[in-house]
């Protein structure tokens, strides 16, 4: 499924992607995802890691039927904008859900799943996705 780039490119974001870690401005307390060098709210430059709870609601969604190369085996798959309970919106795949079940405001929780694999001999990339809560 496409040759991988040098692994460093993916490796440097493992933690943020496995765990859904973003940024929190030490000056104004604004939380955002992904973590940025400059606070989008107050312009502060002192940003610390922020662990999101992983709970959120679907703002919008689509079903990808013609994926970019590298994702063909997974099609069709849902992608959504999810508003996290702490405020920020993230884009991610939905998983363990039928397209017909998805709706505006649907509650979801973060899980860590395989996002992409590179051929038989390449690395496997894992990252956050969202699914309807278990309970």
């Amino acid at each position: 499924m496409g040759r991988p780039m040098q692994v460093s490119r993916y490796w440097r974001h493992f933690k943020e992607k496995y765990r859904l870690i973003g940024g929190k401005c030490k000056n104004c307390g604004h939380v955002h995802f992904p973590k940025r060098p400059v606070c989008p709210e107050c312009g502060g430059k002192d940003i610390e890691d922020f662990q999101f709870s992983g709970k959120g609601k679907v703002v919008s969604w689509t079903i990808v039927r013609n994926p970019p190369s590298g994702y063909e085996y997974y099609k069709p798959y849902p992608i959504a904008l999810v508003e996290l309970e702490e405020g920020p919106v993230v884009l991610a795949q939905l998983t363990d859900v039928d397209p017909e079940e998805i709706d505006f405001g649907m509650e979801v929780e973060m899980v860590t799943r395989k996002v992409r694999e590179f051929e038989e001999d390449g690395i496997i990339l894992y990252g956050y996705k969202f699914r309807p809560p278990i309970k």
């Binding site: 496995y18 998983t95 899980v111 860590t112 799943r113 395989k114 894992y126 996705k129």
Partner: peptide, 13 residues
Amino acid sequence: NNLDEDAITIGIE
């Protein structure tokens, strides 16, 4: 397993 699951993701949850 779902398409995006393997022993690792099962282990994580």
